[in-house]
């Protein structure tokens, strides 16, 4: 199974990953529209953490024994058979936040769409490389 690998030594904290993730998960898929016209604004599922010169982009690690899957009470949080990603089935999610509470990386967020759901990295579905990896200008993220 492929994973997103973080190379913190090359992350320059430009946050292009955040922007591209947001656009990728917006309705329009257009950068200006995603930021200016979509309400509520779509959420980025990757976040750059910074401390001094150290920075890295953190998204769901798609753990092998994912606590969020075990602790999901509806079964919405499940492992995608195809790419091994831990993904949230938005139709089943009721927003109980068991996943947020159990994620040791703090990468699950609340999102309010038609109803409240847990929002997290889905490895951009199955369309090849995730947007954050493709758009990282310094290859600080890799998908392998």
């Amino acid at each position: 199974m492929k994973k997103i690998h973080i190379h913190e030594e090359y992350c320059i904290g430009c946050r292009l990953c955040e922007i591209n993730c947001l656009v990728k998960h917006s309705k329009s898929g257009k950068i200006i529209k995603a930021f200016k016209e979509e309400f509520p604004r779509p959420l980025s599922r990757v976040h750059v953490e910074e401390k001094g010169y150290l920075s890295f982009a953190l998204q769901c690690r798609h753990c092998e024994d994912a606590q969020c899957i075990e602790n999901c009470m509806t079964g919405a949080m499940h492992r995608d058979e195809k790419n091994g990603a831990v993904v949230c089935d938005e139709t089943r999610c009721v927003g109980c936040w068991m996943c947020i509470m159990s994620c040791p990386f703090g990468v699950v967020q609340r999102e309010k769409k038609e109803k409240r759901i847990a929002s997290k990295c889905d490895l951009c579905g199955s369309d090849g490389e995730p947007a954050c990896v493709v758009n990282c200008p310094n290859e600080a993220l890799s998908y392998e």
């Binding site: 030594e9 090359y10 992350c11 010169y53 150290l54 310094n138 290859e139």
Partner: peptide
């Protein structure tokens, strides 16, 4: 040798 700057160059690239 400034760590803020050196990481701008990814040696693989």
């Amino acid at each position: 040798q400034d760590p803020y700057l050196t990481k701008r160059l990814n040696p693989n690239i």
